[in-house]
Design a protein around this nucleic acid. Structure first.
Length: 533
RNA sequence: GGGCCCGUAGCUCAGUUGGAUAGAGCAACAGAUUUCUAAUCUGUUGGCCGGAGGUUCAAGUCCUCUCGGGCCCGCCA
C-alpha cells in the first residue's frame, strides 16, 4: 500500500518540480487515525531545503496529486506545519482483502532481497556444554530472520560453526577423562552433570575414539535441542576441517602476502591496528598453533568464496569486541566489509521469581535451554524470544512464564486463529473458498471494528518488508498481536453468521483474510496456528 | 582506564528509523455471556521516557556530559 502511495506521490512531485532524490520520501501510518490512513512529512523536509513555507509546499504537492490522481485516495489534506495526510478509498482496502484470499500463504511476500544469496550464521556455541537461554534467543532470532529474508525473495542458508578444535576441547576431554577414571575434574574443567553422564555412556559404549564420541554426543544434543525449538540448520560447519584442509594456514599466508603481518615474540601477528582495531592480534602462537581468530578468518574467507552477496552473523554480546578485528582482516584481504553484517545479541537473564538464575556452563546447577523449552513449550519460548529486539537485555521469569501460561500472549494470538477456524467450520456451505469475491458487498463492512481490522490486515506486506530491511523479526510479533486484538474486538462487536446473508458473506471473507494473515505471521515465526484450542 | 549495549507505567516490554495527544500485556479495581470458542471484550487507576545541557518547525528517538545496570578488553574459544 505504501508503495502505491509512494508512486503516486513521486509522480506528483516530479510534475511540480519538487522531487529531490536526496530527501527521503517516507510514508507512515499515523498514530492518530484522524491524521489519515497514511501520511508523509516530505513537504516539511523539502520546504526546509528550498527555504520555503512548508504549508505552501504541501499545498502545491496536493494540488498536483489531485490533478493526476487515480482512485487511490478518497481525501488528501494538508495539516498544521505541513504534513500531508492521505485517506485511502475504501475500495482499495476491499480489493486488498480480496487479494489476501487469492494469494493465501503467499500474501505478504515481497522482493526486498530478491535473488540475494545470504548466509546466516548463528548460535555457533562451543560443543563443551549445554545450550543456555541466550543461545535460544539468538537461535530464534536467526531462524526468524532467515524466514523473513526468504519471504523477501532472498536465497538464504543457515549455518552453525562448530568450534571442535582448541583448548576448550582439550579441557572438555580432560574433564570427561577424569570422570571416567573416577578422578576429580580439573579445576578449570567442565563440572556440569552432563560430564558425568557422558563418562557413563562412554564407559558403556567403549568407543574407538573418545574424542569423536564426545564431540558427536555434544553436537548431537545441541542439534536435538535446537530442533525441539524448531531451529534446523542447513549446514553444520566444522572448524577442524579448516585446519585439516590447510585453509587456516592459507588465510594467514594471504595476510602475509598483503604485508599485513609481522613477527614478534615468536608469534605471527596481524596488524589489525592499521585497519581500525585497537590492538594488533596474534594469528599463529609462539608454539606454532593458529589462534581461533586465524581459523575464523579462514572461515569467513571460505564463506566469501562460496559466492554469497551478504553474510550475516549473530553473535552474543560477549563477542562484540571481536567485530573490529574480523572486519579488519577482511578489509586487509581486500573484501568489502559491508558484505558482513554482525548482529550483536544481548543476553537473557533468567529468573525464578525474584531470584536470578546464573547460566554458567561450568557450574552444575544451571538452567539449560532444554529445560526452559520443556517447561514452557516451544511455541511460548519462541514467542517470548520473538517479542523484543535483540539490543535489550531480556529479563525472563520462568515462574511467570509457567504460572501464567494460560495468559501468555502466544495463546492470545493462537486463540484468535482457532476462533476464526471455529466460525468457519460452522459455515461450511458458505465458506469463503466457495465465494465469488467479485460479488461480495464489501461496503457492508462499515463500522470501526471492521475498518480497523481491514486496514491492519492490509498493512501486512509493508510490515513484513520493513521488518526484513531492518533485520527485526520482532516487528512481526508486535504486529500479529495487534491483528489479534483487533480481531477479538471485532468478534465482540460484530456477529459473523446471521440471517443477513450478504453481511455474513462479507464478514466471512474478512475473518478468512484475518486467519490467513495470522497464520502467515505465525508461520514466519515458526509458531503453530492451531485450528482448535 | 577503554569499548559495545541498555535505562519508557508497580513488573515485562513496544514505540513505524526525527513527526502530530507516549502505547500494549501482566498486576489492581469495576463491568460484559439466553448469541458463531470468556484462553475473549469494555472501562478505571498508573508517566518529569534515569538526569542536565544542546541541535530544529518538531526529540523517547540525534549530539555532548552525567548517573545507574549488563557484557567485554588473553599467544582462550
Amino acid at each position: 500500500m505504501k508503495e502505491r502511495i509512494r508512486l503516486e506521490l513521486e509522480n506528483a512531485l516530479k510534475k511540480s518540480a519538487l522531487f529531490f532524490a536526496e530527501i527521503p520520501l517516507a510514508i507512515e501510518v499515523p498514530q492518530n487515525p484522524k491524521h489519515g490512513d497514511y501520511s508523509t512529512n516530505y513537504a516539511l523536509l523539502a520546504a526546509k531545503q528550498q527555504k520555503k513555507n512548508p504549508h505552501d509546499v504541501a499545498l502545491i504537492i496536493v494540488d498536483a496529486l489531485n490533478k493526476h490522481s487515480s482512485n487511490l485516495f478518497s481525501k488528501i489534506e494538508v495539516v498544521k506545519p505541513g504534513f500531508i495526510n492521505f485517506f485511502i478509498d475504501d475500495r482499495m482496502f476491499f480489493s486488498e482483502i480480496a487479494l489476501i484470499l487469492y494469494q493465501k500463504d503467499g500474501y505478504g511476500e515481497g522482493d526486498a532481497f530478491l535473488n540475494q544469496k545470504i548466509l546466516l550464521e548463528f548460535v555457533s556455541a562451543n560443543p563443551t556444554g549445554p545450550l543456555h537461554i541466550g543461545h535460544g534467543r539468538w537461535a530464534v532470532l536467526g531462524d526468524n530472520l532467515a524466514r523473513l529474508l526468504l519471504s523477501q525473495g532472498g536465497k538464504v542458508e543457515t549455518e552453525f560453526y562448530v568450534n571442535n578444535v582448541g583448548k576448550q576441547i582439550e579441557m572438555l576431554m580432560a574433564s570427561v577423562g577424569a570422570a571416567i577414571e573416577g578422578q576429580p575434574i580439573p579445576e578449570n574443567g567442565y563440572h556440569g552433570n552432563y560430564i558425568k553422564e557422558l563418562a557413563e555412556k562412554a564407559k558403556e559404549e567403549k568407543p574407538a575414539s573418545l574424542l569423536d564420541f564426545v564431540l558427536a554426543e555434544m553436537i548431537g544434543s545441541q542439534k536435538q535441542i535446537l530442533s525441539l525449538l524448531g531451529v534446523d540448520f542447513n549446514r553444520w560447519f566444522s572448524e577442524k576441517d579448516l585446519h585439516d584442509s590447510g585453509a587456516v594456514k592459507d588465510a594467514v599466508a594471504q595476510l602475509e602476502k598483503k604485508e599485513a603481518t609481522f613477527k614478534e615474540g615468536g608469534a605471527v601477528w596481524f596488524k589489525s591496528e592499521d585497519y581500525g582495531d585497537d590492538k594488533n592480534r596474534v594469528l599463529i602462537r609462539e608454539d606454532g598453533v593458529p589462534t581461533y581468530f586465524a581459523a575464523d578468518i579462514a572461515y569467513h574467507l571460505d564463506k566469501l568464496n562460496r559466492g554469497y552477496d551478504s553474510l550475516i552473523n549473530i553473535w552474543g554480546t560477549d563477542h562484540h569486541g571481536y567485530v573490529a578485528r574480523l572486519k579488519a582482516a577482511l578489509q586487509a584481504l581486500g573484501f568489502d566489509q559491508n558484505k558482513l553484517k554482525i548482529i550483536i545479541g544481548q543476553l537473557v537473564s533468567l529468573y525464578r521469581g525474584e531470584e536470578q538464575v546464573r547460566m554458567s556452563k561450568r557450574t552444575g546447577d544451571m538452567i539449560t535451554l532444554l529445560e526452559v523449552v520443556e517447561e514452557i513449550g516451544c511455541d511460548a519460548t519462541r514467542f517470548f524470544m520473538s517479542m523484543t529486539n535483540e539490543h535489550t537485555h531480556l529479563d525472563f521469569d520462568l515462574e511467570l512464564a509457567k504460572q501464567k501460561s494460560d495468559e501468555n500472549p502466544v495463546f492470545y494470538v493462537q486463540y484468535a486463529h482457532a476462533r476464526i477456524c471455529s466460525i468457519l467450520r460452522q459455515e461450511d456451505l458458505r465458506r469463503p473458498a466457495s465465494l465469488d469475491y467479485a460479488a461480495i458487498q464489501f461496503s457492508l463492512l462499515s463500522n470501526d471494528a471492521e475498518k480497523n481490522l481491514i486496514k491492519k490486515l492490509c498493512a501486512f506486506p509493508d510490515v513484513l518488508k520493513e521488518a526484513a530491511l531492518a533485520y527485526e523479526p520482532h516487528r512481526l510479533t508486535v504486529y500479529v498481536r495487534e491483528v489479534a486484538t483487533l480481531f477479538h474486538n471485532f468478534y465482540h462487536q460484530c456477529r459473523v453468521i446471521s440471517d443477513d446473508l450478504e453481511t455474513t458473506k462479507a464478514r466471512l471473507v474478512l475473518i478468512e483474510a484475518a486467519r490467513i494473515v495470522i497464520k502467515n505471521v505465525l508461520k514466519l515465526l515458526n509458531i503453530s496456528a492451531p485450528e482448535r484450542m
